[in-house]
Design a protein around this nucleic acid. Structure first.
Lengths: 353, 353
DNA sequence: CTGAAAGCGCTTACAG
DNA sequence: CTGAAAGCGCTTACAG
């Protein structure tokens, strides 16, 4: 039953068996019209009898399509990337594509090397999850017209097709939330300024403060840490300030967890002494002991969109080169215990501030 | 400077420019001996001038080597798989290999399909992280001699090359630890019996109890849940038992977190009312609010070994077919707050039991 | 040491 | 509607 795996059948063996030419076999395999039904049937019969599966490598060589796409992420161990990667792999599989995974650790040189490598491997397109705002390798890639879509982060030039969260609105909403709870010294622990996510979230924070007529205090802003250990240090420093901030908005969930740790080590209670929030709504944010208020993104949807746009791009590159798609997804503020909004009146909070 | 990406140079253009034949260019590119130094230099000069990069697809077609490996995991959003995948991708990259990621959700049919697909894509080998104890598709793959290495889980037949944790010893040590703390009703929340990890950890638990002359109470054993929501339910049921278990060993960290949630929702204090432990030592286990006692594995090392064995397998398939490698890594018990060993005397604990 | 030729397994004009 | 031929971009015996 199961064909021996040793020597896969070739198209010419199928042709011989069906009594036709390899060209005809190729035609029925690729669903081309103009093949007499009887011949088509004979070919199909032969294909099945031999368990024939066309060699994708050979096919790639001639048509230049590998049915492979590349996925470049900053860090697959970050739950945000893991969850989007899962959706990407799953969606691609459903469309007959396989995905090659690359991890950049946010190193521009490494990312540039991976882009080169993926193109050499003849992937049909690339999904980029870790672009920097200024990113020569990506800018060049976009300019070249090679099918690619960014997700999560985008270029400062705003070039190319991308799907991102409305990070500014997310930053704005969570800031407004803390303001509404009566907080007046709200710190912002932003990621590196070179990531659009961090920059946009911070911009939203500033906008919300200004809209509320509150000053933006530079001492309350810490830039540069998306890594837990750096965020931990920055949080400790913030907590040492007098007067102490009453809330800290972390640039993502992972840094928010580090903020919680720092608070615990300094004997600060969350949310009584300090309100905390994150971004991403990763699995752990809802853990009973964490209960992190956070700005959620539609991670599965984001991954799915990235794949769909990329495959459309591959189908019709000219269209995307002429008019790239900029898809901005809405944020959702998820209120949990860590911000102090649950089970506390505004008056009660005002009293402790 | 930068060669136009539009029409990549071909080996015959390089040959023309260097005034040699394509065969010679191929030789110097592949580091073959017997090329006159002057000619070699001319070829290298031409390669650089044209920014030539050999087409890996064409190369694959003739040599049958794609410089690509497949990686099949159960769930990339599980931190264990994310961390090992990262090490695998990184190690492979260092050796000039690219990795195609597949996610099985532990579905045997899906896994079988991915194996087929990867072979069609002409990957040179496959790393399998989600095999079932009985797994026809994998057993067939191993029997066929196709280069593959399992990690994390292995087959009941024990066939093939693998690198796994000494799960039995891990289960044994954590059980002994709870026994030493004075616990007498230790529950075990095992993963599905079809995973060797779950089966082996449970076997270790049984062994430790028997060695201590303690009975194995079947009501304290729950099989089947590696998913947080199922584990949560199972934990609630365990906690409703009278007398209540005083400790629960979870099959992995993710289920341990669910156990913590269940305890919290029932108003049980950890570790005062109930000791809890996990497996894997994922990032979150060390979170200040979690402080989960757990059995650690060397995840990076495991990933690295899997790649290295696979590449050796690819180099010398006969050797691996004749004598597969069975690499068993030692577990490390990491004691944190959740088991109750910290800051409590044994007498104190005995009093509460 | 080097080149001409064949070939990897497909697809695709080009004829008919 | 179908086949013979050329070709995708390499590598590898085979001669010399």
């Amino acid at each position: 039953m199961i064909p021996q795996r040793s020597r896969p059948a070739t198209i010419r063996e199928v042709a011989r068996r069906a009594g036709v030419s390899p060209a005809t076999v190729s035609r029925v395999l690729n669903g081309r019209p103009y093949v007499r039904p009887a011949i088509r049937a004979a070919v199909i019969e032969a294909v099945e009898a031999l368990g024939f599966r066309p060699d994708p490598i050979a096919r790639s060589l001639v048509v230049g399509a590998s049915r492979t796409i590349g996925l470049i992420v900053a860090d697959i161990t970050n739950p945000f990337y893991a969850e989007t990667a899962k959706a990407i792999v799953e969606t691609a599989r459903g469309r007959g594509y396989v995905v090659v995974l690359c991890n950049t650790e946010n190193l521009p040189n490494l990312q540039a090397e991976q882009i080169r490598m993926l193109q050499e491997q003849r992937v049909e397109g690339i999904i980029l999850g870790s672009v920097h705002r200024r990113d020569p390798a990506v800018e060049e890639l976009v300019a070249s017209g090679f099918p690619c879509v960014m997700y999560n982060r985008r270029l400062l030039t705003n070039a190319g097709t991308y799907v991102v969260l409305d990070n500014a609105r997310g930053g704005e909403e969570v800031t407004r939330h803390f303001l509404a709870l009566g907080h007046r010294r709200i710190a912002f622990l932003a990621g590196p300024a070179s990531f659009s996510t961090a920059a946009d979230r911070l911009a939203g924070y500033r906008r919300a403060l200004r809209a509320a007529g509150r000053p933006v205090d530079p001492r309350l802003i810490r830039q540069g840490q998306f890594k837990p250990d750096l965020a931990y240090q920055a949080a400790r420093e913030l907590f040492q300030q007098r007067p102490r901030p009453t809330a800290v908005i972390a640039g993502n969930d992972l840094t928010a967890f580090a903020v919680l740790d720092a608070a615990a080590h300094l004997g600060l209670r969350v949310p009584e002494d300090i309100g905390v929030s994150g971004f991403d709504d990763t699995e752990f944010a809802s853990n009973e002991r964490i209960q992190l208020t956070t700005v959620a993104q539609q991670k599965v949807e984001m991954g799915r969109l990235a794949v769909n746009y990329l495959l459309e791009f591959i189908q019709d590159p000219d269209r995307f080169r002429r008019s790239p798609i900029r898809h901005v997804l809405p944020p959702t503020l998820i209120v949990r215990r860590s911000c102090g909004a649950m089970g506390r009146t505004r008056a009660g909070l005002a009293a402790t501030v």
